[in-house]
Simulated scan of single mutants.
Amino acid sequence: MSEQSSTRPSRPVRVGVQIQPQHADYAQIRRAVAAAEEAGVDVVMNWDHFFPLYGEPDGKHFECWTMLGAWAEATERVEIGALVSCNSYRNPDLLADMARTVDHMSDGRLILGIGAGWFERDYAEYGYEFGTAGRRIGDLGEALPRVEARWARLNPAPVRDIPVMVGGSGEKKTLPLVARHADIWHGFGDADELRRKAGVLDGYCRDIGRDPGEIERSAGSQEGPDAVGEALLEAGVTLLTIGTDGPDFDLGLVRDWLAFRDDHNA
């Protein structure tokens, strides 16, 4: 199994923004989404938690999927989704139906981002069993085929083949799930780590007879493109997502990445 991904990606570069649904009123979140779409981002995402991840731990916070339904109606062009939805919080068949519904509300612009979950406070306060990381990843592996099977049975069917983004970088359990089920892999780490893990993912794809090029590679950055842009491209990443926090939702770094995207794609 190869441990290095050596091909520079041929896909166009895309830029996403994660509007973190914390420390803000919903009106501020809605304005941030509108500003991101107007600025020209490709994807607008939130996250799937019940409490802030940093800052005041009991600060303002809103639920993921209710918000995605509102964004479907409030936006016109951008793709929308969660980075990422926690598999533990919803029955997989229900999640598939929710995703199909938001897909229709948005005219086919939903990405189903999904991961195994990790934030113990969410589990404890909302009554979910936290268990072990291995068990949560195992549950994700059982859920993904159920999501796919439910989509095949729903009436009406999804508007499009809903892209599945799997978030996580575990080499023994998560990356095999990415190889089998994902259209987008959201990885974690610096460019060198992402390049190495991409090589592992490519090997899993070859093991099951899948073209690794079918999977878009995604990562977040809180640095500017002058610092890390070329290195991330060399690592195979073409979807760059910048997080921004309430109440101000500063898009300055996002605009720098948009300029990088436009120069690269010209």
Rank of each mutant, 00 (worst) to 15 (best):
D48E: 14
R14S: 12
R217I: 05
G252W: 06
A36I: 02
D139T: 08
G69R: 07
D103Y: 06
W118K: 02
T174V: 14
G138E: 12
G187D: 01
R90M: 07
D226K: 15
S5Y: 12
A227I: 10
V166G: 09
M67K: 04
M1R: 07
R135Q: 15
V254R: 02
R30M: 14
I80V: 15
D42M: 10
A235R: 02
Y128G: 00
R261V: 04
L232C: 06
R153I: 11
M1W: 06
P212W: 02
G170V: 09
W71L: 10
A133Q: 15
D192M: 07
I242R: 04
A32P: 01
K173M: 10
G127S: 02
E37Y: 09
L232E: 06
C64R: 04
G117Q: 04
A35V: 05
A266T: 14
G113Q: 00
H104Y: 15
M105S: 01
G55V: 06
G236H: 09
T238G: 09
Q18K: 10
F62W: 14
M105R: 03
V166A: 12
G213R: 12
G170C: 09
L201S: 03
A72M: 08
E171W: 04
L258P: 03
V78N: 01
S218M: 11
T244K: 04
L95N: 00
G236W: 10
L83K: 06
C64Q: 07
P247D: 09
E63D: 15
R77P: 02
L194W: 00
D250L: 13
T244W: 13
G246Q: 06
E79C: 13
A198V: 01
L258G: 03
N87H: 11
R180Q: 13
V43F: 10
G16E: 01
R217Y: 00
R31S: 10
P145H: 08
V200H: 02
A266W: 14
R217M: 11
R261T: 03
W65E: 02
H23V: 05
G141E: 06
K197A: 00
D25L: 10
W257I: 01
R8V: 08
E73I: 14
D107E: 13
V41C: 09
V13C: 08
H264V: 15
